[in-house]
Design a protein around this nucleic acid. Structure first.
Lengths: 195, 195, 195, 195
DNA sequence: CATGAATGAGTGTTCATTCAT
DNA sequence: AATGAATGAACACTCATTCAT
């Protein structure tokens, strides 16, 4: 039931998805929904929590590589971006839920998604801090702001890559994840002016 | 009536705002709403259209400065960012509507906000193209992608600066617009590694 | 709408009466109900409150007669009983609501009806106190208990007279109010052993 | 299971008590209920029937004493009232069910409780008839009415003694059963004017 | 221009009951 | 005997929209 609910929420939005549609798609009776979930809100929260877990797993496995040179750092970042994009691609519906419902919707839902985004930001923050310690990044930079910028970047990038500018669930990524990841990581470190 | 509707939409979200609340806040009768607007949807669309106009005005006035050096370019970008942040700060409710409802909500609403975002992206794109022509940026870069990245960046930055990570309408910007603009413009051109 | 609701509540009981039935009987749309009443519960509370008011008016007008002899007292009591019975007879539905829903039902409803019954009891209590002061009743009696007994008596009597033993809304009083009132007043003062 | 159901029905009322609550309190599965009882209604009916039996046993044992004088009669009545009050006190939940659900609720439930009340009334009626035959009561009195009045009296008295005016299940009797019984029996025979 | 009473389709949720195991 | 997952009809309440004044 959760898969079909996730799909419907992603396609039509949480408020526009009726319980009756979920149960119809899942081929169970209306009452059955309430055997498994306390309310409509509970299923989204649960969906988001599950998604958070998988997503954080990806992130925590991301930045493993360590190395001395700047290129190693770019490498590692590219790797993380790539992992995230791959995850996002195979979890389109989840990403839609996170990016779309997370912004509007009921307080409780917003709170749940915010946690996910904060977690991403903190992962970036830790990485920047480490890099500064290793003298790979200038210690003059405003770390929290930069972490924020990176989180924004990755979030927006995933969102646009997956759904295009119009948040269209049927939009197809126009370039491979690897290429995208490389471009963004490059921008991350070198900006518009390039290497 | 439009101001109070904008405020309510921003505070509670479009689907959670009832016509009855709007008219109550505007001190008119329920029927009066329908003398001014064809439907609930129409008022949002109209609200977004008005917002789009003002926002585009800001953008079009932004990149006026021309100049030969890279620093001129950074300057100009900082200026634009600054203008956008200032506009956003004095139009919090509009920005909330744009960033929040623009992602979820009905097709028509999403379409309206998408136009605004596309316009921003195109403004950046034109600027990058010009810079490449002037040999101020390497001609190897993927222009649409970079424009996209910039649009993402500015969008996410405004959103977080105004509302914090949790999309909280009562969040207060923690740093002055000017400082924020400078930091972001710097990142835009030089990336994490700095100038 | 209130009349038809009262009738339906009396006939079928509060929980068994659907809003849809009320509006159907009142020939208005479902939503109209909620224009006038906040909830299903609110209409009963209102109904009971109105009933309480009329009922208390009857009671307060009841014991007006004053007099020196015991027979005057019996007279006055008969008069009150008679007034109450007449009121009850022309407000069958209200009495049903009071006696039936007042005992079960939601806390709020029970509380509302309890007030009515307490008011009746206090009217009796004041009368007994006055009679004791005038030495028309022995000052050895337990006043609150006796007031309670009288309240019970009148309540039960009305209930059975109107609805029979089986709380049947279609039951018809088998004897005239006046006769009933006289019998009960007689019992009130002289008990089974009679005058 | 019946005990816990009785308790719950008394506490929350029949319609507000869910099967799920009964089985939860009885620590069995939902389906188990339907192995023991055909329906929710059936368990109440059964509960009432059991209660009726015990109650009638008390009543039939009540008026055993015979005697020539009026005081003997008052004695006997006091004894019966006392027995009833004691029974009621140790069967609070049952009494609540009888007095509360008996008035509202489904036809079948009302019918079941009515039987109990009719039985009480008939016990009183027989006693009055006997007393009239023995010339202990004037033969001018309206026997059925008086029986009715007595039934009302005892019913209301038990109800108020146990639950107070507000039908509060947690109310505690404020005076001992014996005292209460004596007072009521005295009123029964002598009325307000006393012996 | 404006009112506010009236509408009615729509929806989340409840809960007695069933039934395969 | 007992389980507990599954059912589905029922119901209170919401709210955008209409319309007679």
């Amino acid at each position: 039931m959760m898969d079909v609910a996730l799909k419907l929420f992603a396609q039509k939005g949480y408020p526009n998805t009726k319980i009756s549609e979920i149960v119809a798609a899942a081929n169970v009776a209306q009452g059955t929904f309430y055997w498994y979930f306390k309310s409509k809100q509970e299923i989204v929260i649960q969906l988001i929590a599950e998604g958070q877990e998988s997503l954080l797993k990806v992130i925590s496995q991301g930045y493993r590589k360590q190395g001395g040179t700047v290129e190693d750092m770019v490498q590692a970042s590219t790797q993380l971006m790539n992992d995230l994009l791959n995850f996002a691609e195979s979890n389109r519906h989840l990403m839609a839920l996170l990016f779309i419902e997370g912004k509007s919707g009921d307080e409780a839902i917003r709170k749940a998604t915010t946690e996910v985004l904060v977690a991403i930001e903190q992962a970036f923050r830790r990485n920047i801090e480490r890099a500064v310690e290793l003298n790979m990044l200038p210690n003059t930079i405003d770390i929290p702001l930069r972490a924020s910028i990176l989180a924004i970047l990755i979030e927006g990038m995933i969102s646009r890559w997956l759904f295009g500018t119009g948040y269209d669930l049927n939009h197809l990524p126009t370039r491979p994840a690897g290429e995208m990841a490389a471009e963004v990581a490059r921008f991350e470190f070198y900006g518009l002016l390039g290497s």
